[in-house]
């Protein structure tokens, strides 16, 4: 079973089986407060995976987490890091491997699986990147491993230029406001089955740290 965490937009946690069966899914859409809710969401997801959703009366079934999948962004940095830090620490606590997943890949898989029989034209996943910018990635269908084929991105673009960029790529615009953690898990499961790495250890920041360089040091002395 894969514990999946994404904090690139809201805070989303899921437990999915290797074949994609969802055992638990919990989330907070709040674009802030990731650090506040992450612990409770992970705890709740594990409890729901064992006992079913709150109110369910099914007998507990064991939850055997074998991997942790973390959404690597793009997304506002401060929140994004909380999920990655949590995923790594959880994995460390149980000596599990971490599978990094580009968050847009999960959004794209959700879109592609929404109607598996539709002929899905090329599309662009568009998410908020703050500072009057969007983050976008262009996708076209699924490959043989069942993973979304990313043809461009992720990249940042000023908000007023997004439609022009999508038109250049001949891609339909798909605004995404929440990354489903279940899809982070499913992308990870498929990448794992195919023996592929989809992202590195470095978050997809896409932006250098914001620093104001001090003015050149004043030289004094004899």
């Amino acid at each position: 079973m894969i514990l999946s965490i994404d904090t690139s937009l809201g805070t989303a946690v899921a437990v999915v089986e290797a074949d994609g069966v969802v055992r638990a899914e919990v989330s907070s859409d709040n674009p802030l407060g990731h650090a506040e809710v992450i612990g409770t969401l992970v705890q709740t997801a594990l409890a729901e995976a064992a006992h079913g959703a709150i109110g369910a009366t099914a007998a507990a079934s064991p939850v055997d987490v074998t991997h942790v999948a973390t959404g690597m962004g793009p997304g506002p940095f401060t929140g994004l890091r909380v999920g990655i830090a949590a995923g790594r620490a959880f994995a460390l606590g149980r000596a599990l491997p971490v599978i990094p997943v580009p968050s847009h890949d999960a959004a794209a898989l959700a879109i592609l699986l929404a109607d598996p029989f539709a002929e899905m034209p090329r599309f662009g996943v568009v998410t908020d990147a703050r500072r009057r910018e969007f983050a976008y990635s262009i996708y076209e269908g699924l490959d043989d491993d069942g993973l979304p084929i990313r043809v461009a991105g992720p990249a940042l673009i000023p908000r007023d230029q997004i439609d022009a960029v999508l038109a250049e790529h001949g891609a339909a615009r798909r605004d995404v406001t929440a990354i489903p953690a279940t899809m982070i898990g499913l992308v990870a499961a498929r990448a794992l089955a195919a023996g592929r790495d989809l992202a590195g250890a470095e978050p997809l920041y896409l932006r250098a740290p914001d620093v104001t360089l001090p003015s050149a040091p004043k030289r004094v002395g004899t």
Binding site: A35, T78, A89
Partner: peptide
């Protein structure tokens, strides 16, 4: 620093849940 603190808070919570230990 808020952004710096959050990294530790996120990690500590997940580690505690993972190990099932008090935080």
């Amino acid at each position: 620093l808020a952004g710096a603190l959050m990294v530790g808070v996120g990690a500590a919570k997940a580690l505690a849940v993972s190990l099932d230990k008090p935080l």
